[in-house]
Design a binder for these strands. Sequence first.
DNA 1: ACCACTTTCGCAACGCTGTTGCCAAAGTGC
DNA 2: GCACTTTGGCAACAGCGTTGCGAAAGTGGT
Lengths: 385, 385
Amino acid sequence: MGGVNRADDRTGGVGGMRGTGGGANLLALRSHNTALVLDLLRTAGADGISRLELAERTGLTPQAVSKITARLRADGLAAQAGRRASTGGKPRTVLRLVPEAGHAVGVHLDRDEVRVVLVDLRGAVVGERRAALDLGAGAEAVLGAVREAVAAVREAVAAVPPAGFDRALLGAGVALPGPLDHARGVLHRVTGFPEWDGFPLREALAERLGVPVVVDKDTNAAALGLAAGGEGGSFAYLHLGTGLGAGLVIGGSVHRGARTGAEEFGHQVIQLDGPPCTCGDRGCVEALCLGAVARGDVEEAARVLGTGAANLVGLLDIDVVLLGGRTVAAAPDAFVHGVAAVLEERARRTGQDAVPVRVAAGGGRAVAVGAAQLVLGPVFGRGDG
Amino acid sequence: MGGVNRADDRTGGVGGMRGTGGGANLLALRSHNTALVLDLLRTAGADGISRLELAERTGLTPQAVSKITARLRADGLAAQAGRRASTGGKPRTVLRLVPEAGHAVGVHLDRDEVRVVLVDLRGAVVGERRAALDLGAGAEAVLGAVREAVAAVREAVAAVPPAGFDRALLGAGVALPGPLDHARGVLHRVTGFPEWDGFPLREALAERLGVPVVVDKDTNAAALGLAAGGEGGSFAYLHLGTGLGAGLVIGGSVHRGARTGAEEFGHQVIQLDGPPCTCGDRGCVEALCLGAVARGDVEEAARVLGTGAANLVGLLDIDVVLLGGRTVAAAPDAFVHGVAAVLEERARRTGQDAVPVRVAAGGGRAVAVGAAQLVLGPVFGRGDG
DNA sequence: ACCACTTTCGCAACGCTGTTGCCAAAGTGC
DNA sequence: GCACTTTGGCAACAGCGTTGCGAAAGTGGT
């Protein structure tokens, strides 16, 4: 290890911290490093990870890792899990995350139903509940239904063994369609339901549930869930259902604009003076893509979607394109191949490797699971996603 | 101030730190907070800023700020600069950055000339030199010319009073056209000059100049320069010259992809099956825009550029669009108004405020000045830009 | 002119961080 | 069975920001 300070040769430093404020004290430093270790424990999964490996990956000294993991074990968040084979000396003891040391609920508030999942620290679903719901039935009814569904899931899980575990609920993440103010938890223009305009959902729900609440757009939540599910680097999640939206993950974190209008992927113009779109513009990807679907021309829809994806890939250097939504689910292969074809053609021209295209994992509960990650993310140092 | 830990009620914490590694020790914490203070001192400019103001803005305690600024003063980086009016007690002493405590050179390596600037810590130009240069003349000739130009600027500045100042050269930033590997400083496919392919420019130049070197794409450097020049938040710099490129600043930092292909703004398709582009695709913004310019139809060129910009604004929630480059400089008003018109039309539809459009400041030496910021940025905690 | 009060800001002691030096524990290999 | 390697905890340590306190330097009332 030598006498040289090991963190000195890192390029990153503490990094980050844009905007105002950002002074860091010892508490911030401690929680930062703790979150880092927790994140590595989570990534390691059931295999576990040794202290020295943690030290190598974080750049901290083994002794610092020992201190941090000792605290985590004392708090019940980590546990010893066997040992590795010796390499000529004392074998490394393997540590693993204790998934049931904390939980989070994820709420997917859709136009016609609410879906609630309870996940553990790993992000694994341990309870789920769906209920029909009219998003236009008014705030009281909707909030009540959410409260009920959340309570039902919590009770169901609490009833089954193994009992005695700490079922600490860290908070609730809520995802719903339409732009909103993520930072303040206030809704804006929920498509088709103007009565929600300006509604302080986070505050109202936090009061009813008695736990911290985070709200976000459904596509962002889905993208976040995919990122937590092992999808690394930068990727775009394109959701093609009744509309066309996207969630963007850049460098591991979800991109949200300062305003609410971010990720209007569907209203990117790719056909100057093309057919009119519901948004009032002409030649939007959404209009072209859904128009082709309506005509039954899935091939053309995929090509159009691929062109929009190619623009994104070129602009932001995306690593993977993931497709989701009901329309994609109806003909997954056609869409994947069609989009991939456009990207491969592009890669052939630029001489680079083609960006892979896949159907997003998670299926129908991807958004709810991602919403839960809105709460879990910060625990593992993922900012707000 | 009370007994409560003040950093606890911040949402940010130490934050950031994506990817592997990232363990932070006390040294990292110290340099983080120091950089934060330096950045505020720089932003304050000649007006200066008081210790208590620094404390409020960073979230640190006044005492911590006093310690940090004492170190900075001892190092010659900060100095007392008068005092403010009293508000009923001891008046605050104002601190300011000592600009001449450090310098950086910025090199703009263009196809036909090299432009070198020497800037102080504020980013103000204190020396400049231009020289004709054939980028295709081979590595030896080009590197020699750069070395000569840099040496000439340094000597010219060292010769003029006020003498005796610490003229510490922190490093050199180099900007040039075409994609490259920013992290490793290796070139890729410099448009029109295939012989530079894979050339380790950073290493080669660092050896000749004897100072650390950072390389980046010209549009990224220009965007970084604009960000350092007071342009806040997220913005896009669109450069329309012999080609069409863009530099993206998201949340105060330059966006670079993991690969080299990021920000291929000009090859965004906005006209399906449109006219062929030099890149091999059809309907790229660059082809349409430059085609219109060639026909003398500046109005149409601006509309096309505006459509591309609108796509960007919608996708990434950009705050400002800045235009630059020779073609824009030839008819600035036409381009600004034409692009603004598209964005205003878009804003009218979505019911939001229109994103403003301006001509980028800095003129012909914007890239060189921005290149210097590649070196200065990290000093002020701006990561690598 | 004097004194009470407010505000700024440095010194000293403190708690806590990660680091270093050292040693016990627990394996492998001759 | 002994030498060696590797792991990881204990204790002392340097250095970070924080807290307690007091000197410095103004204002405003008397």
